[in-house]
């Protein structure tokens, strides 16, 4: 547990919110009622992940487990390494050191960076999603909304136009886009609609893990609220595991179960989201929390 003296060290050990032991001695593990918790394994396990850009640190020695169905917010200011971390664990950026293991649908644990690219791509468009801050990075702007949503289905072998279109229409409805916009290109959509379309495009294959990079960044506050509410609903309904990078603590509070606070490429505090926000322990987290503007 953090004591006062630790804070002077330049690289303090990350504060793991509640206690230092991973396996509390008092848990009589296999009690009669709890297979869900006792037998579950992490979906994704990153360990010792570092990324250096030359001598500059992107992120350093980050270890993190993502469990099924949990939303983990990675917060920190610009340059804290949160996006680098997201890219490293989502195989978009090869880490300099460290491993990222993933539990496949068949239960096998695989090292993502030892996987062939074909398999990795397949994984990324079936079991994963990636929501970019700028929807133009995650959408095909010159094909229709329906085709944008249907692409992953077609890429995984769907060959019935009517079914693909019906599924796309259903997903547009779920992200609150009127079905009669199905043949319009996202170029004709507002920022909030584009972001919702991007989410539908990612969720159509029923992924288990979705990465989001500032999903509400650049949107008006009212549009942001609607998107957050939509995300909350979808995440709960679908039991998604989500890693969301955000600099907005309000977004983290609303969406996430667990929080990872980063600074200078290192994780400085993790824990239950409301615990980190209501009882921040690391000096930087306290600064971050105290800097929130109250509306």
């Amino acid at each position: 547990m953090m004591t006062q003296g630790d804070s002077v060290s330049p690289h303090p050990e990350p504060i793991e919110g509640r206690g230092e032991t991973a396996n509390p001695p008092l848990r009589q593990a296999q009690g009669d009622g709890l297979p869900a918790l006792a037998e579950e394994k992490p979906l994704l396990s990153a360990s010792g992940v570092s990324k250096f850009y030359g001598s500059r640190i992107g992120c350093e020695d980050v270890s993190i487990d993502i469990w099924p169905g949990e939303v983990v917010a990675v917060v920190g200011e610009s340059g804290s390494g949160k996006t680098t971390l997201l890219n490293c664990i989502s195989t978009r950026l090869m880490p300099t050191t460290g491993t990222v293991a993933y539990r496949m649908r068949d239960g096998q644990i695989r090292d993502l960076y030892r996987m062939g690219e074909a398999e990795r791509r397949f994984l990324m468009r079936t079991d994963w999603g990636f929501v970019h801050q700028n929807p133009a990075d995650g959408l095909r702007m010159t094909v229709s909304a329906g085709a944008n949503v249907g692409e992953r289905l077609m890429a995984t072998g769907a060959r019935h136009y009517g079914n693909i279109r019906a599924t796309a229409g259903d997903w547009l409805g779920r992200v609150e886009i009127a079905e009669d916009r199905i043949d319009d290109q996202p170029r004709a959509f507002s920022g909030g609609m584009r972001q919702r379309l991007q989410i539908a495009r990612n969720l159509v294959t029923g992924p288990r893990l979705v990465f989001m990079d500032e999903p509400t960044g650049g949107l008006d506050v009212s549009v942001q609220a609607r998107l957050l509410d939509l995300l909350r609903g979808l995440v709960t309904d679908l039991g998604l595991a989500v890693v969301v990078v955000t600099h907005d603590l309000a977004v983290a509070r609303l969406l996430s179960h667990r929080m990872v606070v980063m600074k200078d490429g290192r994780v400085i505090e993790t824990g239950l989201t409301d615990r980190v926000l209501d009882d921040p322990r690391a000096p930087y987290t306290q600064l971050l929390v105290s800097s929130i503007l109250q509306a």
């Binding site: 919110g17 509640r18 206690g19 230092e20 032991t21 991973a22 509390p24 001695p25 008092l26 848990r27 918790l37 469990w67 949990e70 179960h257 667990r258 993790t270 824990g271 239950l272 615990r275």
Partner: peptide, 8 residues
């Protein structure tokens, strides 16, 4: 022991 339990 909630004082030492993991977040999840």
């Amino acid at each position: 022991d909630l004082a030492r339990a993991e977040a999840r």
